[in-house]
Structure formats: structure tokens, C-alpha cells
Design a protein around this nucleic acid. Structure first.
Length: 1084
RNA sequence: GGGCGCUUAGCUCAGCUGGCUAGAGCACCGGCCUUACAAGCCGGGGGUCAUAGGUUCAAGUCCUAUAGCGCCCACCA
């Protein structure tokens, strides 16, 4: 027999329990004939580092849901995995390479770098998995995937091929955010902005051949002066006077609507605008006319003549009213260029590494920031610098390298998100095939509650459907093309071979290409001006010197090597870029299940099969679409939207029906916890100190609605052992280190620095969880001490005592409440229902009441059997939240009381993890009994209160008498035992004719009078009673006022008025009784 | 600049469609080593629900404005 140790020690129990689950493969899911299935796709942690509390929250929520559904006997699959996280991972490894060996990626080459990243990935993936396992995650480890696994790579390639074939993937020139350090483009999502002190340089551009009466130069301003080297025009507004008036009018309207506080600033602005009518407009009008005449200005330093052009981008109300146009390095200027392609050039002045290229003239080879300094000095010496203003500017930084990004013109691959002429086909060749205007629109439609896929499913966000739907919707509504190429070496390489070919050479190349089956190799030919030709159409093109880009997509990796050789011979080479990480993550819900074909999915050796077998369906048809995605708010746009698009496009169905958005964990300063901020906490540190179950308990308890969680954290200084509040501590040499205020020494909170001691993170919030587990442990231990192996006997209701029937009634209601709250994605409310039942009802009342009964040789077996049953249900009920401790206790309970139940034995199970979820038993629920029990509890509390007020020691029993009539008297009499035991009474009497002992303390409530004898101190008692009276009078006053209000009586619903009347009467009766008692006592 | 959200006890948070004396945990105060648990038990104090208006018989809950805080998106020659 397995005895429970007397002390709760999470460290001792958790790891053996996890081993048991692993041994028995309790986590494993296989398709079968069950209709109810529950599927969660784990949001992929990046292999860039360790998990923090945000991940812990995410994982615990998923584990709680999956365990709950598994116990409800759903076929429950939780698919785990990790993400290769292209930029993030390559950046980390490159950084280490440079720090440790002083080498760049170019020194060691593509193959060697990728090999090193694989090593890194293996190491960190292991660490992440071990963290998830120590958190108790019951994912299906036999299906663990990595986004660069063959099975995922195949899905990526297939999707790319299909999108390319459908012309939804295309290559084009775009201004992208360029990371000069990592030498790659980064998406908008990967750029963060910071306000810095900067300057605003006002430059003079001389006008070419100024006529008398014309200005000698125009003034333009910039925060990035070096970009002037790439200027190709200066723009002014075509109708500056009218435009200024329009702006003035707009500003006036705004002033009318503005608040008192905003007005002064706006009015000052208006004054400035108005002054411009005189100061700027005449000259701007003149410049506009000059621009119309095709006049030019001389670009300083470059000595290049560039045109004055007319464009509405120039704002007459700002600066000089003229604006320099640098199409190659500014997004707005790029737009201007697209409107004036015939008039002006587009020039790129940057090399990929951020130095200036040959287009920068004298500045070629200089770093952009060095060039800026020299260029400004040069302008100054030529008297072309009007002035420099100090100004706060927002600079965009790459999230990965922390260096400023540059807008940079380059050729990139895009997914077309917008609507397409004639619409697009989604779920092609499936039974769910449908048409939509475009990819983004399809994903937007799918959150509309009226939209239904072929399976009748759509997507809902929880716990706030409207709010999060809007976030999702607003982002998609922009329908911006998705840039999917990254100039990296780590990731899925773009399966396109391309080359530039003239119209003359085209026929020969196309001849060769048309030999391929289009099912294997798909070809598009891009011509000038965004023109695009199919292979057939391209053959009709004129054979001239026009340049075309031939693009061929090879569908299958297996054929790549051979075709690569053949295409190389034609001058087509594979694009060196890799795909945006989100491209493969978007496919996660399908690629992991074996899409496009689970029957031959290239899964790793030893993994659970995806193919159908023995009459069981394959994983894709069985588990897709899934059930719930659990994630944080920030992921809605990045990932949820893209999974929707990919799911709808490939399979014609949503990837899941529910999205559970959990709270964001903030630190003590209210800032979001994240790795990049250095305030992320390793949950393992919490587990070390408090145990996994404590961690999980508190995370569940904190997860209420949409409220973000503030978790003030402290580090235990490795030098003093004292806690250091991280909200106020000073940082050390990096954002990951802090200075211990007592010793002045530096420590690290991530554990990634080799030369600095790391500190553990504590937060007293987690004590709550540990205390709870300790309580559960001790209650269970107490139960075991009293239980004994006995044969199961069916218990009928009349064999049960009041407290037995009460606890069973409460249990059933608790199960119903927990179910309801979990279904509504409200873990906090769920766990609190369970907690209150266990702690306040089971421990505080039931256990105390049955202590003597359990020892009774005659009837003890009844109490013991009920206790075993309730404990059984409590363990099941808590298992999804705190799996380790419940599983451990379950083992002991199975030993000592293998058969448990009331009228019949409960279904047994070796593991509580696989046991059936408690059911609601309406036949146990008893309103009247609960009301009577509540009355008894109320009486007991009032007696205890009196005892406390008079500081009666617990071991001194007192006598109590209650004056009560009717049903109350009857039910209290029935519970004499309970009252005597709980209130520590020597004697207890109740009845309508009860007489107050001479010197008894009194409490009046409702029609009841409680007399506690032998404790009285007249003065104290009078004070107590008068306090009660005051309180009562206040409430009576309130009620009378309410009822005296004619409108209340007239307009409030009748039952509300009626209740109020009844209440007033009761209060008055109570007051009368109280006053009697006070009068009596005053005479003493 | 556009959009969204938050402000309830010292702290962290509940409070559904408006309706009994606004709740919990932690912290605090008083009393208990009652043979499961001092990581516990029993009892208690503490809130003009950010501010100002409004709607209503009735407002923490609905509306408007103000202040503070936060998030997302866009943009700043």
C-alpha cells in the first residue's frame, strides 16, 4: 500500500508522475470512431530561447482544456511543435558566431551556418520540450513537429506551388524595411518605433537659371539628409493657395470640436497657417507655375538637374511647402514616383549593408551615418544649409537586430491579399470548394456569424467575440500584400528558379520549359510594367530586346535536383531567399496532420502514423478542422488571420472554430513580459520554488475575462539571497541584467550569460497555489488515515445523514458550475467554484462534521464511502488545473478505496488523467436541504462570533438556546448535532417557547433569537446590541425611503416592490426583538 | 492622427441582461499549537466603485465629457 508522505513536496511527486504518463502514453491521440473530438494546435514557441510566463499561461490554458476534454472522453489531440523562427533564430546564432569566433555568416558560408543553426535548434528544442513537460503539458509527443520537418516542408512547397500557379504569389519591386545588419528585409510587424532626439535639416536646392523675380533656390527639409543623394525631384502642390485654404477650413472645424485643453495649441497652429497666405503662398504659386514649365533645380553635391514636379503630396501648410522626392528610400516618395514614372527616376543609393553605393557619388563606400555627417558639413560649407532644428523623431528599428531600418527598394515575393478580378477558388478540388473575391476577403467573411463553411463551421473569438473580431477584421480589411521573401539562409527556400531573358531568347527557353508537365513545373513570365504572361501567352511575344523574367516553380522537392540542373542550363537559378516564417506557421493546422496527403506523409521515424489503418480514418480528415486555438492578443493578426487564409485556401474550411484569447502577463511596471524586453520569467524558477501545480493553479486563477495580469516579480539576489524588486532595480550592462542594490553586483535574469550569476524569480502570488495544494494534500491525507478498505455497498438516500446529502448536493452543483465556466473560457471562475467547494464546504464543514462518525464501528462505513466518493470527484474536478498532485493522491486512493460511489460504484480508472469527468447529478441536488444547512451555518457563525467577542476559549463549551418557530425550529432541531459540534456547545435547545437565560448574550436575526449563556458582560453586550441596532435602523431607513417614493412603487416591477415591502417588515420585526433585549439588559 | 480597452479595499482581481447591506484571495488586526493542515483554524476592520454631469423609480453596471494608464494601426519632407 502506498502511504502519503506527511509533507507535501511537489518536487518529489511531479517528475515520477510525469514519467508514468509518458510510459503509459496517456497523452496519445489516434483517430477512432468517436464523433466528439477536441483538437488544439499549440502556438509554436520559437527555438530562439527559453519559455517565459506568457508561454506558461498559454500552455497551461491549453493543457487544462485538453485534459478536461480528454476526461469528458472526447478524442483529444494536442499537437505540439516548435517554430524555426527564421530571422530570430538566424540572428541569435549569427550574433553568437560573431561574439565567440569573430566571424560573419559570409565567412563560413550558407551550408555551414545552416548546420550551426540546426545544432542550436536541437539544443533549444530539447530545452523547450523539457520545460513544457515540467509544466505538465499532455500534448501528443509522438506527433511533435518542427516547421522545417519534411512533412511541413512538403506542405509549404505545395502551398507555394498552388498560390504561384493561381498567380496569388508574384514578384515585384517594393520598398521594404531593410535591416542593414542582418541584410534582410523585415516585415512591418518586425519593426518597432522609438522616439529619439534628432534633427531636422533644411536644405537649399538652387534653381537652374532663375529668371528675374524668381527665387534663387527652394528649401526642402529632411530628417535623413543623406537620402538627398538619391533625390530625383522636388515637388510642390499644384494649387497651393486653394489647398492652404482647404487646410485652414479643416483646422477651424477641428477647433470647433476640440476640447478646452486642446484649443490653444490648435489656435496657434491656425495663426501659423493664416500667416502663410502672405509668407509662403506667393512663392509656392510661382514655383507651381515653374514646375508646369518643366523647370529644374540642381541637386547639390551630385550636381544633377532634377525636375520640379507637381504633386499633392507636397503640403503648402508644412515646412517650406516644397518636398524633396527620394523614391528609392521613402515610402511616400515611392508613391509619388509611381504617379510620375515618365518624368522622374528612381535611384537606390544604398548597398545591402547600409553603406552608400556607386550612385552616391563622392560618398560611395561610406556608412550611411558617417556620410550624413560629412554631407551636412559639405552642404554647410557651400552655404546650402538653411538651418537645423532639433526635433523628436520616430525611428523604426528592426526587432531582431535592434538597428535602424532603412526603406529600401528591392525585388521581393508577395502573396496577393486583395481582391482579384473574377475572384479566386478556395479549397480547390475538395468537396468544400468555394469562391471568394480574394484571400483577405475570404478570411474576413469567415468570422461573420452568418458565414458557414461547407462543414457549417465558422470562427468565434473568446472571451470577447466582438472586440477581438474587430481587431482581426480591421487588420485584414487593409488587404495589404504580404511580403513573404526574406534574405536569410535559415528557412524554407523559395522553390522558384528565375532568370532574365530577352524577347529574342524567349522562344528557346520556353520551348524547353513547355516540355515539363505543368503539374510539376509551373511557369510565369513577367514583362515590363507589371505585365504577366502564361507560358503559352509568352510564346506570342515579339522577339525583340525587351527583357522578361522567366519564373519556374518546381512542385516536388524530390525532382528538384534534376530539374535544377536543366534550368541552370537555361540560365534560370533558384531564388536565394527563404520564406517568411509565418508562411510555414500559417500551414501548421494542416501540415502537421499530413496535408496534402496524410497517407504518405513523410513523418519522422517512431511517430504516430497520419495514414488511415484498420478502418480508422487518417488524421487530416479526422482532426481537421480543429477546435480551439489558444493564444495572446498580439497573435490575432500575425498568425490567426494567416492560418485562416491558408486553411480556407487549401482545404476550404476554417482551421478551428474557437480562438481563446488569454490575458497578457505584465510585469510589476505594467509592461508586457517578453523575451526581447528582458523581463520574461522562466517558469522553471517558479516551479522550483512552488511546484508546477502551484504555478498552474495561480495562472488559472489569474485568467479572468480580458483583464491583463500584473505580476509584480522579484529576483532573489544570488549574492545576498534577498529578493530584489525588478520594477525598481537598476539594469546592469544589458537589459537582461540588474544590479543588486545591497551588494552592488550584477546578476542576470535569463540565465544566458556565462560570466554573470543568474537569479531566480519569485512572486508571492504563487504562494496561493502552493497553499492550496498543501491543503488538498492534507485533506486527502486525513481522508486516507480514516478510510479503510471495505466492500462497496450501495447507499440509499435514507442511509445518508444530512451532511452527506448536503455535500453531495453541493458537489453536483459545483460540477455544473465548473462546466459552465470552462465552456465560457473562464478558468478563474471555474477554479474558484471548485476551490470554494473543496475548501469552504468539504474541509471546513463536512470533514469536521464526520470526524466522529467515521470511527463508528456500526455506521462508519457510510461516512467513509461518501468521503471516498467526494474525494474521488474532487480529484477529477481539479485534475485539469493541478494534474500532478491529483494524480498522486489518486494512486493512494485507488489503493485504499478502490471502489467508490454512492448508489453504484463510479467507473474506475488507473489514472485520473484518463478517468471520466464528474457528472452532474440532479437527483442529489436538494434546494431545501441546502437552505436548512445554510441556516445552520448562519446560526453557528453567529454563535462563534459571540464566543469570539467574549474571547471564550475553544476548549470551553457554552450553552446556547434559540427562540424560533415553525420550520426553522424543526430544521435546527434536526441539526442539533451539527450546531453543537461546530459551535462547541455543551447544550443546545431550540423552540418557540425558549426562554432567555438571565445573563445571556443575544443575537437577533430574522425571527430568530440566539441566546448564548454564561459569557455575558453587560456593558460590552449593550455596545454590541446598539451597534446592531444602528445598522438595522440605517437599513430600515433606506427601505422606508424607497417605499415612500411614489415613483418607485408605481414604476418598479411589482415583484421588486413586493420584495422590498417584505424586507422592511422583516427588518422591523428584527428591530423590535433587538429593542426588547436591549431594554431587558439595560435594567441589569 | 485613427481605433480599442482599463481605472472597484493597502495589493492582485471578480461583479452576467441596471434591483436585498459591492465580493474573493493576499496583506492587516484580535483569538487559537482544537492529534489532516500555523502553508492551518475561528472571528474582525477596511471601499463617496477615477472625476463631473446625464438617463432611470433605481447606476459600480447605461450615456456624455474630463483626467490618468495601456494596447493596436497609420503617419510625421
Amino acid at each position: 500500500m502506498k502511504e502519503m508522505p506527511s509533507k507535501y513536496d511537489p518536487k518529489a511527486i511531479e517528475s515520477p508522475i510525469y514519467d508514468t504518463w509518458m510510459e503509459k502514453k496517456a497523452y496519445a491521440a489516434h483517430p477512432d470512431d468517436r464523433d466528439d473530438r477536441y483538437v488544439i494546435m499549440m502556438p509554436l514557441p520559437n527555438v530562439t530561447g527559453a519559455l517565459h510566463m506568457g508561454h506558461a499561461m498559454d500552455n497551461v490554458m491549453q493543457d487544462m482544456l485538453i485534459r478536461w476534454h480528454r476526461m469528458m472522453q472526447d478524442n483529444a489531440l494536442w499537437m505540439p511543435g516548435s517554430d524555426h523562427a527564421g530571422i530570430a533564430t538566424q540572428a541569435v546564432v549569427e550574433k553568437r558566431l560573431f561574439e565567440l569566433e569573430g566571424k560573419t555568416r559570409h565567412d563560413i558560408g550558407r551550408e555551414a551556418l545552416v548546420e550551426r543553426i540546426w545544432e542550436w535548434k536541437d539544443q533549444y528544442e530539447k530545452r523547450i520540450i523539457s520545460q513544457q513537460q515540467s509544466m505538465g503539458c499532455s500534448c501528443d509527443w509522438d506527433r511533435h513537429r518542427f516547421t522545417m520537418d519534411d512533412v511541413c516542408a512538403r506542405a509549404v512547397r505545395e502551398t507555394f506551388y498552388r498560390l504561384f500557379r493561381d498567380a496569388l504569389i508574384f514578384r515585384g519591386y517594393r520598398l521594404v524595411n531593410w535591416d542593414c545588419k542582418l541584410q534582410t528585409s523585415v516585415s512591418d510587424d518586425e519593426v518597432y518605433h522609438e522616439t529619439t532626439d534628432g534633427h531636422f535639416w533644411h536644405l537649399r536646392y538652387p534653381i537652374v537659371d532663375p529668371q528675374p523675380g524668381e527665387p534663387k533656390y527652394v528649401i526642402v527639409a529632411t530628417t535623413r539628409p543623406e537620402t538627398m543623394l538619391g533625390d530625383t525631384a522636388v515637388a510642390c502642390h499644384p494649387n497651393p493657395a486653394a489647398e492652404l485654404e482647404r487646410q485652414i477650413e479643416k483646422l477651424r472645424e477641428k477647433i470647433d470640436a476640440a476640447s478646452f485643453k486642446e484649443k490653444p495649441a490648435l489656435e496657434a497652429e491656425l495663426e501659423r497657417y493664416e500667416a502663410r497666405r502672405e509668407s509662403h503662398i506667393p512663392q509656392l504659386t510661382q514655383l507651381a507655375a515653374m514646375a508646369k514649365d518643366g523647370r529644374k533645380v540642381l541637386l547639390p553635391l551630385q550636381n544633377r538637374e532634377i525636375p520640379l514636379i507637381l504633386d499633392e503630396w507636397a503640403k503648402p501648410e508644412l515646412g517650406s511647402g516644397c518636398v524633396k522626392i527620394t523614391p528609392g528610400h521613402d515610402a511616400n516618395d515611392y508613391d509619388v514616383w509611381t504617379r510620375h514614372q515618365d518624368e522622374i527616376d528612381i535611384i537606390n543609393i544604398l548597398n545591402p549593408d547600409g553603406t552608400l553605393n556607386e550612385n552616391a557619388g563622392a560618398y560611395q563606400g561610406q556608412d550611411r551615418f558617417d556620410a550624413r555627417k560629412q554631407l551636412v558639413a559639405d552642404l554647410d560649407s557651400q552655404n546650402l544649409l538653411e538651418r537645423i532644428d532639433d526635433r523628436e523623431i520616430e525611428i523604426g528599428y528592426s526587432d531582431r537586430s535592434k538597428t535602424p531600418v532603412e526603406p529600401y527598394l528591392s525585388k521581393q515575393w508577395f502573396v496577393r491579399m486583395g481582391d482579384v478580378d473574377g475572384g479566386i477558388i478556395l479549397g480547390r478540388n475538395t468537396d468544400k470548394e468555394f469562391k471568394a473575391p480574394g484571400l483577405a476577403q475570404a478570411a474576413m467573411d469567415a468570422v461573420d456569424e452568418n458565414w458557414k463553411s461547407a462543414t457549417g463551421r465558422n470562427l468565434t473569438f473568446y472571451p470577447d467575440p466582438v472586440r477581438y473580431k474587430n481587431t482581426y477584421y480591421n487588420w485584414l480589411a487593409e488587404k495589404r500584400d504580404w511580403c513573404i521573401s526574406r534574405q536569410l539562409w535559415w528557412g524554407h527556400r523559395i522553390p522558384i528558379w528565375h532568370g532574365v531573358v530577352s524577347g529574342k531568347q524567349l522562344p528557346a527557353v520556353l520551348e524547353k520549359l513547355s516540355a515539363y508537365d505543368p503539374e510539376n513545373v509551373w511557369v510565369w513570365v513577367d514583362g515590363p510594367q507589371d505585365s504577366k504572361y502564361s507560358l503559352e501567352a509568352a510564346r506570342e511575344l515579339p522577339q525583340d530586346e525587351t527583357l522578361y523574367e522567366v519564373q519556374a516553380c518546381i512542385r516536388h522537392k524530390t525532382e528538384e535536383e534534376q530539374i535544377d540542373a536543366e534550368l541552370s542550363a537555361l540560365g534560370l537559378i533558384q531564388d536565394p531567399d527563404v520564406l517568411d516564417t509565418w508562411f510555414s506557421s500559417a500551414l501548421w493546422p494542416q501540415s502537421t496532420l499530413g496535408w496534402p496527403n496524410p497517407e504518405d506523409a513523410p513523418i519522422r521515424e517512431g511517430q504516430s502514423p497520419t495514414a488511415s489503418a484498420d478502418g480508422r480514418p487518417d488524421t487530416l480528415s479526422y482532426y481537421y478542422p480543429g477546435s480551439c486555438l489558444v493564444t495572446g492578443r498580439d497573435i490575432i493578426t500575425l498568425w490567426v488571420a494567416r492560418m485562416m487564409i491558408a486553411g480556407l485556401y487549401n482545404l476550404g474550411d476554417v482551421p478551428f472554430t474557437d480562438v481563446f484569447i488569454h490575458a497578457t502577463i505584465l510585469d510589476g511596471k505594467g509592461e508586457r513580459m517578453s523575451k526581447s524586453k528582458g523581463n520574461g520569467i522562466d517558469p522553471v524558477d517558479i516551479i522550483d520554488l512552488y511546484g508546477t501545480d502551484a504555478l498552474r493553479y495561480v495562472l488559472c486563477d489569474m485568467q479572468t475575462g480580458t483583464q491583463d495580469i500584473r505580476l509584480p516579480v522579484q529576483a532573489i539576489s544570488p549574492f545576498t539571497g534577498n529578493p530584489v524588486d525588478l520594477a525598481t532595480a537598476k539594469h546592469g550592462r544589458s537589459i537582461f541584467t540588474y544590479i543588486c542594490p545591497e551588494s552592488g553586483k550584477e546578476f542576470d535574469v535569463l540565465g544566458t550569460m556565462d560570466d554573470i550569476p543568474s537569479a531566480k524569480i519569485i512572486s508571492d502570488r504563487f504562494e496561493i497555489g502552493k497553499n492550496f495544494c498543501n491543503k488538498l494534500w492534507n485533506a486527502a491525507r486525513f481522508a486516507m488515515m480514516n478510510l479503510q478498505t471495505q466492500d462497496f455497498k450501495p447507499l440509499s438516500k435514507d442511509m445518508l445523514t444530512v451532511e452527506d446529502r448536503w455535500i453531495l448536493s453541493r458537489l453536483s452543483r459545483t460540477v455544473a458550475n465548473v462546466n459552465e465556466q470552462l465552456a465560457a473560457y473562464n478558468p478563474s471562475a471555474a477554479i474558484n467554484h471548485a476551490r470554494d467547494f473543496f475548501w469552504s464546504e468539504l474541509c471546513d464543514w463536512y470533514l469536521e462534521l464526520i470526524k466522529p462518525r467515521m470511527k463508528d464501528p456500526e455506521s462508519g462505513f457510510i461516512a467513509r464511502q461518501v468521503l471516498a466518493t467526494v474525494l474521488d470527484q474532487v480529484l477529477r474536478l481539479f485534475h485539469p488545473f493541478i494534474p500532478f498532485i491529483t494524480e498522486t493522491i489518486w494512486e493512494s486512493l485507488n489503493d485504499i478505496a478502490p471502489e467508490r460511489g454512492v448508489s453504484e460504484p463510479l467507473p474506475a480508472a488507473e489514472l485520473v488523467m484518463l478517468a471520466t469527468w464528474p457528472s452532474v447529478n440532479p437527483e442529489w441536488e436538494d434546494d431545501q436541504l441546502e437552505a436548512e444547512f445554510a441556516l445552520m451555518q448562519d446560526v453557528v457563525r453567529r454563535i462563534r462570533n459571540i464566543r469570539n467577542k467574549y474571547t471564550v476559549p475553544l476548549n470551553k463549551e457554552v450553552d446556547a438556546i434559540i427562540k424560533a418557530g415553525g420550520d426553522d425550529a424543526q430544521s435546527l432541531e434536526n441539526m442539533t448535532y451539527h450546531i453543537k459540534r461546530s459551535a462547541k456547545l455543551a447544550t443546545f435547545q431550540v423552540g418557540p417557547d425558549a426562554v432567555k437565560p438571565d445573563l445571556a448574550a443575544v443575537d437577533v436575526f430574522g425571527e430568530l433569537e440566539i441566546y448564548v449563556d454564561g459569557v455575558l458582560d453587560v456593558e460590552k453586550e449593550l455596545v454590541r446590541l446598539n451597534n446592531s441596532k444602528e445598522n438595522l435602523l440605517k437599513r430600515i431607513g433606506g427601505a422606508e425611503k424607497k417605499l415612500g417614493n411614489e415613483n418607485f412603487v408605481k414604476r418598479a416591477p411589482e415583484h421588486v416592490v413586493e420584495e422590498e415591502r417584505k424586507r422592511l417588515e422583516e427588518l422591523k420585526a428584527e428591530l423590535a426583538l433587538l429593542e426588547d433585549n436591549i431594554a431587558q439588559l439595560s435594567g441589569k
